[in-house]
Design a protein around this nucleic acid. Sequence first.
DNA 1: AAGTGGTCTAGACCACCCG
DNA 2: GGGTGGTCTAGACCACTTT
Lengths: 243, 243
Amino acid sequence: MIVLKVNRSKQLIIARDIISKIKYGQYRPGTYLPSENQLTDLYGASRETIRKALNELNDLGLIQKIKGKGSIVLDIQRYTFPISGITSFKELNSSQAMNAQTKVLQNKPASVPEYFLARGVDNDQRATFLERLRIVNGEPSVLDIDYLLDPPIQKVPTAEATNSLYEYLEGQLGLRISYATKEVTVEKPNVEQKKLLNLTDRDMVVAVRSMTYLDDTTLVQLTESYHRPDKFKFTDFARRKRI
Amino acid sequence: MIVLKVNRSKQLIIARDIISKIKYGQYRPGTYLPSENQLTDLYGASRETIRKALNELNDLGLIQKIKGKGSIVLDIQRYTFPISGITSFKELNSSQAMNAQTKVLQNKPASVPEYFLARGVDNDQRATFLERLRIVNGEPSVLDIDYLLDPPIQKVPTAEATNSLYEYLEGQLGLRISYATKEVTVEKPNVEQKKLLNLTDRDMVVAVRSMTYLDDTTLVQLTESYHRPDKFKFTDFARRKRI
DNA sequence: AAGTGGTCTAGACCACCCG
DNA sequence: GGGTGGTCTAGACCACTTT
């Protein structure tokens, strides 16, 4: 039995609390949060702890901190649907209230394709090949092809692949997924993609290829995700970095 | 005369120093940085200050912090070309050593197009309409259409638009660009896009639309950026957020 | 002058990893 | 048990904004 460690740090509890207050309208877009000193009293935390919580919100684009004035709540309505970051289809699905279903097409041992070998993955790396079709509002929209690396993933029960792969990896296997690299290009679809995504000869396909790593930098997942171009929308919030 | 305020905080100086040591091979991918306590002595800073510097590197995907072990340098080679975040074409150009040039096609007052009006921009907002073609290695690759809002931007000298718009906004006008929202879709090109980007009837175009804001949440720039699909590549580094 | 966020410190305790 | 990163604190000084 694997017991999940949940991060219950003060700064995270505070961050989540403020986020929920923004979400439920207690703090409204365009208004200022209580000052850091007030939040210090409100949560019984030191100012540095409050600041770490607010920095999380700042990174997420929920607030803008303005020196001498305060932290203003931004209007998050406008840039919903963040496929930036690492988010699983299940999480997207529930957060967007889409009517979506997943069909597992293949689930078997296989070797790693050329694209990832060229990026340093071992030639004889063992892997589970998982092919899934995402159907949104009755229309096939995304073809997901995953390679789950063994170790640490020996196999994936098809039921879990249908439900939520990440819940299986993080919940059941206790893996701590930490970061990923991602590459988006637009390509001509192959025969299989055309057939499964109902593409015509004139269509292109949006390819998202990613490599996902654990806390300890172990590579665990390779993904090729092919999107119908008319169904594809990627939104992002970015801060200017001057490092 | 506008004098630029440069952030010379200790944590930023330390972050930059460590980054340059990674860049020049003093700290190599797969090896550990000196421990936080050692860095404390090395830079004469408190541990919290060192940690803030390291967190910058962590966010950028340059290192991975592992509890109980240390901070390991990641292999940044593999995911170069970060168009994530807010990065100007000039910055991209110099960091990627591409042979690129910019041709300014239009530069005149205009009103804001429908797409942005639908997202809350004022109907009678005054703006400078700037249309630029980016030519990479002799091939037209990107068509950039900007609307610079007045206030605070009254006009843009064409010389500055050719060189670097961001240098003009940040350097000359003293504006502090802070964050942006971005949306990527794939569309059928219109006649102008076809002509300027040498697209055929079968081609699609990648549209990147963004809204850019200052430190004080003032909206300053609306951009529609159209990319040749075969020239388009977007790469990203993302950390899993469990907020 | 008062209030705000930005930076920095010295010290403390904890959880994790390894020999 | 000793070293590592993760969290938290109380206090200090600064830069910026507003009154």
